[in-house]
Design a protein around this nucleic acid. Structure first.
Lengths: 340, 340
DNA sequence: TTGAAAGCGATACCAA
DNA sequence: TTGGTATCGCTTTCAA
């Protein structure tokens, strides 16, 4: 037993003294064979350490693979790590596997990855973001498999969309901050080569602020990942460039926390000297000494929902094509609490 | 063009007026065909939107797949998200893809995942941890593919090991804290159903502390993920149960940060009233107002190295079987700075 | 420079 | 309750 060479179904069948069709039936629990036959086959499966070759199964015919291609921009941003965790755990409960692609926020990387992953005949694809290159879009259309676009809610998705309306979530925060009397507001985030959800939030935010007569006086988009330290030095840069900012909106809570730490180090009182608002309600918020003004989104749930919708689609259940996960503004106490 | 049905190589060949062998040669850049032929084939590839079926390629013959199975305990722990990022990015540069498995720290989950992923004929496997079920170990041995065990350095790995010596890293911290005069020390971490790296660190830590005449008076292992909030409430529990702890060692920096926040909320001065030490030198440490006593490990590099070693092994370059990534104690300022 | 045939491991279909 | 045969898409091998 346990040879170095791979054991095939024919070998099991031969050892058990049956045809490979019979062995195949036993392994698939198809029924239509004697108990004695079943026992003989299974005994050889154990003895030889047989592992099926699913490549051959998928290749042979009707059954699809259990691969789901999952593209994620990067894992340094905790938000996406949570989304991926939600996706993979849920897929796992259905016996499916994620084939990962870290696209680094670029459409070209995504396109390359899509081309490769499609060649593995995945059962479906889950893609972060609604923007894809023209070639990618064409490949996706031709692939004939379910595609779930997550993160940005897309009212006319390629196939199915699961996410939230980032524009609205930014708008709500802008309106809230304006309602507190903030007039000159700054933004600190990161930039990428393509339109993305953070940009949508910023757009919504600006619209609300400007609609209320305020102004987003400075927008800082760093070439970095959206985490603690860029929030810290971004705040430094922003305050150096613009003296009279009353409040700063950050791309996410990690960056906002970096900003809070910068302010604390400089003796700036939050919220008296400056207001701080983040996004995402990340785990770190749970241990801060005061509630961070933010926007709650259940990233794990978003991932799970995406996986569930994919599974429903694959089992040909009817599935609506737009799934709004929702968000909730968290007033918090890192901004002042009434118009001033 | 762009039918719903998949386009095969034969169809491309037929459309181009050549045999499928010729088309195959063109697509693989094998040479041995006229420029005219090449042009005709490529024109049809474009026109029909042909995408190769890599399943068939792998299935057909000698070439292995470009899948690498990657098992990771969970992504809620930032440490593992970084490791995965390092692995997947590096694999990507070689044209390989990660097939993810989140094993939730259980050997049974890992075994199930290994069985499934092996049926997809991966080129190799990267597994977190050195402990596997007996069946898993047998399958791994029989698979005849490279297996890289990461995280714990394993002096007698199944195949190749990339990681650090967690026992030593805990030992160093224990010795350091003892050298500062700490005698009664607590520990806050999480527990799982199997021996793991955090346990190794704790073992090394205890040995050093006890060897120096001190004592780890309380070890708290929570059933939770190793992140901020468990660090916070774990600290509360630990201090409630044990009055005279002088210093607390945490499973990682995220938990340590939760502990710091708890202390701050209770008016406990760090390090005067209590010392705090973490592990991992996570990104959050970069924006804290003082240096967290910790242990630096380059998680991203660990992942990258694992992927590099895998690639080297697959290209049959000689590869040593033990790769120590190393660690570095960070004295920090969340413990007192001299014997007392 | 090109093509025809065999075969990879499994399943579907039909026959016994 | 069983087994033979064709087949999936591609590459290898050998022949032209």
């Amino acid at each position: 037993m346990s040879k170095n060479k791979k054991v095939s179904l024919s070998q099991v069948a031969q050892a058990a003294g049956v045809s490979k069709m019979t062995a195949s039936r036993v392994l698939r629990d198809e029924g239509g064979y004697s108990e004695d036959t079943r026992a003989r086959v299974m005994a050889q499966v154990d003895a030889l350490g047989y592992l099926p070759n699913r490549l051959a199964t998928v290749f042979a015919g009707d059954q699809g693979s259990t691969f789901i291609g999952v593209s994620i921009p990067d894992l340094g941003n905790e938000v996406f790590a949570q989304v991926l965790e939600g996706i993979d755990r849920k897929l796992g409960t259905f016996g499916y596997q994620s084939v990962l692609g870290l696209t680094q926020h670029t459409l070209q990387e995504e396109e390359n990855w899509i081309r490769t992953v499609l060649s593995w005949q995945p059962a479906g694809l889950i893609l972060t973001g609604r923007y894809h290159s023209a070639r990618a879009t064409e490949m996706l259309r031709n692939a004939g498999i379910p595609v779930v676009e997550i993160w940005d809610l897309n009212s006319s998705p390629l196939d199915i969309s699961v996410g939230i309306n980032h524009f609205d979530s930014g708008f709500d925060m802008g309106r809230y901050l304006a309602s507190l009397g903030y007039g000159k507001i700054g933004y600190v985030g990161t930039s990428h080569d393509t339109a993305n959800a953070a940009t949508e939030r910023l757009n919504g935010f600006c619209k609300a602020v400007e609609g209320a007569g305020g102004a987003v006086v400075k927008q800082l988009c760093l070439h970095d990942t959206a985490t603690y330290y860029p929030g810290f030095y971004g705040t430094e840069q922003l305050l150096a460039a613009t003296k009279d900012v009353e409040c700063i909106y950050y791309q996410n809570d990690a960056m906002a926390f970096g900003g809070l730490q910068y302010c604390a180090g400089k003796g700036l009182n939050v919220p008296n000297d400056i207001g701080i608002a983040g996004w995402g309600d990340l785990p770190i918020a749970s241990v801060m000494n005061r509630r961070l003004t933010s926007c709650h989104v259940s990233h794990l749930k978003l991932g799970q929902r995406a996986a569930e919708v994919m599974m429903a689609r694959l089992s040909e259940e009817p599935v609506t094509n737009c799934h709004d996960i929702g968000f909730r503004l968290i007033p918090g106490s890192t901004v002042r609490n009434s118009g001033g």
